[in-house]
Design a protein around this nucleic acid. Structure first.
Lengths: 110, 110
DNA sequence: TTCAATAGTATCCTTTTGTATACTTTACCA
DNA sequence: TGGTAAAGTATACAAAAGGATACTATTGAA
């Protein structure tokens, strides 16, 4: 039996969402709207500048978020979800639902 | 602003689904039902034994799939989705929907 | 005149993922 | 007597992801 091409579609979505910080970044932007680099950084305790930059660049590359640079000093850069990015919301929502509902399942071993 | 704990729930789901082969394995098991190791292997062209074993072990560890060994020679081992594993279906479905719908978006650069 | 603030780079290192290849066990079949 | 099948293990290696730390440019404020 051959694998059907449709099965692989799941990986497209997964590929975009995978990364230690991407889902959280997206949820933040969905919830708070446009955010500055430093605001995101403050919201994500533990993330390094390098990681945040990298994740944002990758999301931008996929058209999921938009980056706007204001020519100022000190610099100001704002990030926001694109319309396309918003189409990921059902997935994020499904994951959030599941995560909340099954939070207790893990604990059963303790 | 502190990050809310609920946001992190998303990662629980993501953590389970992440891996080059996990979503495909799960979709197969959901669609075909119980499968032997060798059947899965044949269905996943390109996967190595080691990888398949590893992914299956991880899914088993999370109670997403069940592994049944028949004491025979040559060996027979069957894998199937657990009831708990089935609760992931909405997420898989949302990802599949999205992937199918937005297949064309990627192409726009070509 | 020195310091802080913003949004990054640069470098180096560790951990996790993934790949390739060879090897194992035991019964059955030719 | 030797080969094959099934479900793995063992070993070595390559690549990707993630982390820690230090550094940069520019301006305004103390």
């Amino acid at each position: 039996m051959e694998i059907e091409p449709e099965l692989c579609r799941v990986e497209d979505a997964l590929g975009i969402l995978v990364g230690k910080w991407k889902p959280i970044i997206l949820l933040h932007l969905l919830k708070e709207g446009t955010q500055r680099f430093s605001e995101l950084k403050r919201s994500l305790p533990g993330i390094t500048q390098k990681m945040l930059t990298k994740q944002l660049r990758e999301l931008e590359e996929e058209d999921i978020i938009e980056r706007v640079v204001y020519p100022q000093v000190p610099p100001k850069v704002e990030y926001s979800i694109t319309e396309y990015g918003k189409t990921l919301e059902p997935i994020l929502h499904a994951m959030h639902e599941w995560g909340t509902k099954h939070m207790l399942h893990k604990r059963k071993n303790y």
